[in-house]
Amino acid sequence: MDLNKRYTPQTWPDHPETATLEGKNKFVGFWLLLAAETVTFASLFATYLALKDKGPSGMEFSAAGLFELPLVFAMTMILLTSSLTSVYAIYHMKNHNFKAMQAWLGITVLLGLAFLGLEIYEFNHYVHLGFGYTNSAFSSAFYTLVGTHGAHVVFGLSWFIALMIRNAKRGLNMYNAPKFYLAALYWHFIDVVWVFIFTVVYLMGVIG
C-alpha cells in the first residue's frame, strides 16, 4: 500500500473502508468488538436494574426523586445530532472531500464535548446533593453504568481528535479511511447505548 498515492474523487473506491485487506480486517474486527461491547453494557444495565433504588436502610435517594428530565432531554438531543453530523462526515469521506469531512467531524467533536460537559455538570450536581459513588448500591451501579458510557464518549472524542490532527496534512488515503469510518461507527454505537440509558435509566427512573 502506497501512502503517497494521491486519490481524486474519481479514483476513490466506493467503499474505501473495506478496499484493502487491512481495512477489511479492521472493519470486521471492530464490529466484533461492538458485539462484545453490547454484552458489556448489557451486564452493566442488568446490574443497574437489579440494584435500582437499593441502598442502606433509610437511604434518601431514589431514581424518581433524583433525575431531572430537561437536562437529560438536552443531552439526548445533542448526542443524537452528533450522530447525524458524523454521518455527514462519512458521507464526505466517501466523496473524497477531506475538508468537508474534517469540518463535520469538528462539529461532532464540539457536540460531544457539550454532551460531556452536561454529564459532568449532572454528576457534580448529584454529588453535591450527597449522592456519592459510595453512597449505596444504587449509586455505585448508576455511576458505573452512565460513567462507563461517559468514558466511551471521552475515548470516542480522543479518537476523533487524534485522527483529525494526525491526518490534517496527510489527507485521505487507503490507510486512514478505515480509521475514520470505524471512529464514526464507534460514535453511533455510543449513541445506541445512550438511547437505552435515557430510556431505561432516566425515563423509567422518573416514573418509578
Binding site: A42, A46, L185
Partner: peptide
C-alpha cells in the same frame, strides 16, 4: 447510520445478534 443491512455485513449481523442474545439472557436473569 451503521449500514448493517449492506452487503458483506452478514457475519457482523450474526455476531451482533448473538451479542444481543447473550445481553438479553443476562438482563432477564438479573
Amino acid at each position: 447510520f451503521m449500514h448493517m443491512s449492506n452487503k458483506g455485513h452478514g457475519m457482523m449481523a450474526f455476531f451482533m445478534f448473538s451479542g444481543m442474545f447473550v445481553a438479553f439472557m443476562t438482563i432477564i436473569a438479573m
